[in-house]
Structures are given as C-alpha cells and as structure tokens.
Write a protein that binds this DNA or RNA. Structure first.
Length: 241
DNA sequence: AACCGACGCAACCGCGGATAA
DNA sequence: TTTATCCGCGGTTGCGTCGGT
C-alpha cells in the first residue's frame, strides 16, 4: 500500500511554471525561507502548487547558485569517475559539482555521457548494464546480452602495483579472457589489492569494476585467484588463457 | 512546407528514511 | 514503541525544440 499523496491533485496546478509563479516563489523564499515546511509553503505564498513541486522548482532551477551552462570536460570526468565508483547516486555525484543539481547530472548522464560511454567502447552491453544497475542492488542481477560482445580493452600495464597501506604487492599480468554469458572481456588482468579494483575493468566496464571491488571488500579476498574463483561463480564468469 | 523521430530538459511519481507527535 | 508526516532521492514521463527527409 502506497503513501497518501501530499496534496490533492485536482486542487493544484501542474506542468510548466510561469514567470509569475517563479517570481512569487522567489519572493516568498527571500522573505521567509521555507520555514522548514515545504508542504505548507504554497498556501502561505499564494501558489496553487504542490509543496513538492515548489521544492523541486527552487532546488533544480530557481536557486541563485545554480549553474545553467553546458558541462565542462572536467565535470564530465568527475561524473564518469564517480558513476563508476558509486553508481547512480546522483545527489552524491552532484555534491562534487558546485552549482549542479542531481537532476542536472542525472539528465546529463542519461542523454550524453551514457551514449559517450557506449560509443567509446564497443562494450555496448556492458555500458547498458552499468547504466541500468543501482548500487543498492546486489551484484547478481547483471543483465547480459544474448550474443557475445567482445570488448576492446586498453593495452596491458606491465608495472607491478603496490599496496601503499601494507606494502604487499600483487601483480597479475598474464593474457587472459574473461567471459560472461554473452560478454567477453579480452585483455590482460592487472590486479592490485591496493587500489581495490582491476584497472582495465575500471576503464572499460564500470559495472564489472564495481562488482569486482564490492566482492573483494565483502569477502576480504587478497589474491587474484581466490577473488576470481569467488567472483566468477555468481556471474557465470569463466577464465580462459 | 510539412511531417516525424530523436533529443534534451523540466517536472512528476512513488518510495524509503528521518523525525515529530 | 507506534504512527503520521515530511523530506529527499532516483526513476520515469511529458513536452517543446531541432534536424533530417
């Protein structure tokens, strides 16, 4: 059973805001603030709007510190990086971008960056899976395409990666293919327990990087073979040399 | 010029969490 | 402790605009 609506839909105006409504809301908020209650605000301000609608309008559009221009390359990088790490937690991502709202970031991702990710790798299936998953979901519901989609991966990094915390070193740099049902990752593994991820996955396939780091954290595995054997089972992943 | 599909963005919906009563 | 209410979030929808045919 769902919650009761916050207001009677028949009694509030919906759709695009008029300049007069914007002005009324801005004027009221400048004079009184929200008084800690968005629900009662429209009544006090003389607006025939739902309180949630007022809040959204203010936070996503009318706030004086909102940045309305196009996203910069640096902002692109931040969004992509954070999405890879934390998934679709738009408010958390937006908090790293002064002047940008969660709605802005979400729209920008859905309309631009998701496609950019898709076209910069041939791993369309991986991008789709990455874009559709939520960080709150267990990592077992990765959807895979029905036919194999090879990913072109960055060239192998032959350096040995050190864990800066305990100085232990794990280096795996042998040619390897990872295979999900319908998804083939070809390249070299380059795993470090220090940075908690498999670098080529991080660059080419955010979802797998996320799964990898989550599973490592959850199980406390500290060697690649152990981790791979555990990681592979729930995802139908196999390793071939 | 008209049509139509793709795109971008503002706004809405519904849920979970926090908190007050 | 329970219930009601509000806030904030992420997903989704609706609509205006633009570009191609």
């Amino acid at each position: 059973m769902g919650r009761n609506p916050c207001c009677e839909k028949s009694k509030v105006k919906r759709g695009a805001w008029s300049p007069q409504e914007d002005a009324t809301l801005i004027d009221y908020l400048h004079k009184h603030g929200t008084s800690g209650n968005w629900i009662s605000l429209p009544l006090k301000a003389g607006l025939q709007r739902c309180g949630k609608s007022c809040r959204l309008r203010w936070l996503n559009y009318l706030r004086p510190d909102i940045k309305h221009g196009p996203f910069t390359q640096e902002e692109d990088n931040i969004i992509c990086s954070l999405y890879t790490k934390i998934g679709s937690r738009w408010s958390a991502i937006a908090s790293h971008l002064p002047g940008r709202t969660d709605n802005d970031v979400k729209n920008y991702w859905n309309t631009k960056l998701k496609k950019k990710l898709t076209t910069t790798t041939t791993g369309k299936a991986a991008a789709t899976a990455a874009a559709s998953r939520s960080t709150t979901n267990p990592p077992t519901n990765v959807s895979a395409p029905t036919s194999p989609v090879p990913l072109v991966l960055p060239s192998s990094n032959n350096s040995v990666l050190a864990n800066t915390d305990d100085q232990s070193v794990h280096s795996y740099d042998e040619p390897v293919n990872f295979t999900l049902p319908g998804l083939i990752l070809e390249g070299s593994s380059n795993y470090s327990s220090g940075n908690n991820s498999c670098p080529f996955m991080d660059e080419s396939c955010g979802v797998l990087s996320w799964i990898w780091s989550q599973e490592e954290e959850a199980i406390g595995a500290d060697n690649n073979a152990d981790l791979f054997s555990i990681f592979s089972k729930p995802h139908g992943l196999s390793q071939t040399h």
